[in-house]
Design a protein around this nucleic acid. Structure first.
Length: 465
RNA sequence: GGUCGGAUGGCCGAGAGGCGAGGCUCAGGACUGCAAAUCCUGCUACACGGGUUCAAAUCCCGUUCCGACCUCCA
């Protein structure tokens, strides 16, 4: 689309500041996003992370970068094993079931499939290689029971991302020092327990620790150094600190920039599973369309907490429908597809650490200008504003004309249009003879069916609510 | 105890020394046979107490309240 702009600025958690983005390799960006542990259906907090980083990816692509986007699936984990017992199905069936649930949710919200979507269990070889390296150079140790630990006190630096001191941490009250040299040492690999799945290693049968997976997979797909590592705020410690510890101990540069999205909150608190099922993506999609949920989740700045309520969701959907309605009217009036383009205001906003709220203000202004152009019958001005609105929505993943969001009953829409046109002909005949009782009766009947009629200078148009 | 973040109008949500983001709601107006849609106008806020400054929502000091992480959470 556009040529690469050199003035994208991003916030880096590592130095708590916004700075100019400089790719490691000109024209290319590698991103690793910590994806889901597939042990439950996704709630809107999970999917917000997906949406936020999807917007980042789309913007990087729009300004000309060749983006490699990796989002992993953690398909082996304590919770998955527990769930398998609870649901009385194999652990791998649990993982597959919820991986599909996540995929469905991502698809419903138009989150693009990652370039690569590695599963942890598919990368045991790379993990063993990494552990061999860490043990060989003295960073890690295998106490003999099948576990492998990283020895954090040997690190030249640790906890730099969260800016903590090792000795300030509240020590785990139940740290088991049978095998660990220090309570802070963390498991790279966990010895097999009877009945649990396991893989053979030189140190005994076992399964991967969470942190090790991500280092191994990021390395496998993006190399020893890559541009952006993302995830939720709550992953900073311990997960990302431990990824850094392992990867730097292996001699890798690892991530250049760390980006973290904030949570969706309810009553000011981080969402938790105790809230039940009501905030699962698929439940909310019974109330609003996918494009509307995406608009809502994307509308706050990615580093700000988003306080969820159904009222706010509905308000946001109303706002979106106004913009969508404008684009539909514009297409009808212009009698052609609207070519997306990027306004300079939108570019400025997005280059400022993805200032989506600022971009939204610009979109509102463009819609107002466009609607005024419709009133003034200024087709050139209408085409320009509609084009810039569509271009912005495309980056935000909310283009109403995107086939992803197309009505699956499009063939029936034509039939519906024919039927409603018949009714509107009757109504217009009644209006022509000033028989408003009859014309209103037709309109009321249509309204009762959920069809809204608008009379415009060029005739009546209809929309389904 | 350590680390990090937050408090903005009826609601959501930006901004980060001056010129009042934007949306939603509500009220009034224009247009319309009436509506709908659209446009215009109005309602105009920065937790509290000090301080710095010509000027503070924004910077500094203090206070209150809320939240997150501290070893497998997006």
């Amino acid at each position: 689309m556009a040529k690469i702009t050199s003035d994208l600025n991003l916030y880096n958690t590592a130095d708590r500041a916004v700075s100019k983005f400089v790719p490691l390799s000109p024209g290319k960006v590698g991103i690793y996003l910590c994806g889901a542990t597939v042990q439950a259906p996704p709630h809107i907090g999970h999917i917000r992370s997906g949406v936020n980083f999807d917007i980042l990816r789309r913007w990087l692509t729009a300004i000309g970068y060749d983006v490699t986007f990796v989002r992993n699936v953690t398909d082996i984990d304590d919770k998955i094993l527990h769930k398998a017992v609870h649901e009385e199905i194999p652990w791998w069936a649990v993982a597959m079931k919820y991986e599909r649930a996540f995929s469905d949710a991502y698809a419903a919200l138009n989150v693009m499939p990652p370039t690569y979507e590695p599963r942890a269990t598919g990368h045991i070889t790379q993990m063993i290689q990494l552990m061999e390296k860490l043990i060989a150079n003295g960073s890690a140790y295998a106490p003999g029971n099948g576990d492998v630990y990283l020895e954090v006190r040997k690190l030249k630096s640790y906890l730099t991302l969260s800016n903590q001191k090792l000795d300030d941490l509240q020590s785990a009250e139940d740290a088991d020092l049978t095998y660990k040299k220090d309570p802070s040492d963390f498991a790279l690999w966990k010895a097999a327990k009877p009945g649990d799945p396991s893989w053979p290693t030189p140190w005994g049968d076992g399964r991967p620790g969470w942190h090790l997976e991500c280092s191994a997979m990021a390395h496998a797909y993006l190399g020893e150094a890559f541009d952006i590592h993302g995830g939720g705020l709550d992953l900073i410690f311990p997960h990302h600190e431990n990824e850094i510890a392992q990867s730097e101990s292996a001699g890798w540069k690892f991530a250049n920039i760390w980006m973290h999205n904030a949570w969706v909150t309810t009553s000011g608190e981080k969402m938790s599973k105790s809230l039940g099922n009501s905030l699962q993506v698929m439940e909310i999609l019974k109330k609003v369309r996918g494009i509307e949920l995406r608009w809502y989740l994307g509308s706050a700045h990615y580093r700000s907490m988003l306080e969820f309520s159904f009222e706010a969701l509905e308000e946001s959907a109303v706002n979106f429908r106004r913009i969508e309605g404008f684009l539909q009217r514009a297409r009808e009036i212009l009698k052609k597809e609207i070519e997306p383009s990027i306004s300079s205001e939108f570019t400025t906003a997005m280059n400022n650490d993805l200032a989506v709220p600022q971009a939204l203000a610009d979109i509102s202004e463009l819609v107002r200008i466009g609607n005024t152009a419709i009133t003034d019958n200024d087709l050139a001005a209408l085409a320009k504003s509609a084009s810039e609105v569509r271009g912005a929505l495309e980056i935000l993943g909310c283009d109403p004309f995107d086939p992803v969001f197309a009505d699956s009953n499009s063939s029936k829409v034509e039939i519906l249009d024919g039927l409603i046109s018949l009714a509107l002909e009757q109504r217009n005949a009644a209006r022509a003879r000033k028989d408003f009782a009859a014309s209103d009766e037709i309109r009321d009947s249509l309204t009762a069916l959920g069809i809204t009629i608008e009379d415009t200078p060029t005739g009546s148009r209809w929309t389904v609510n």
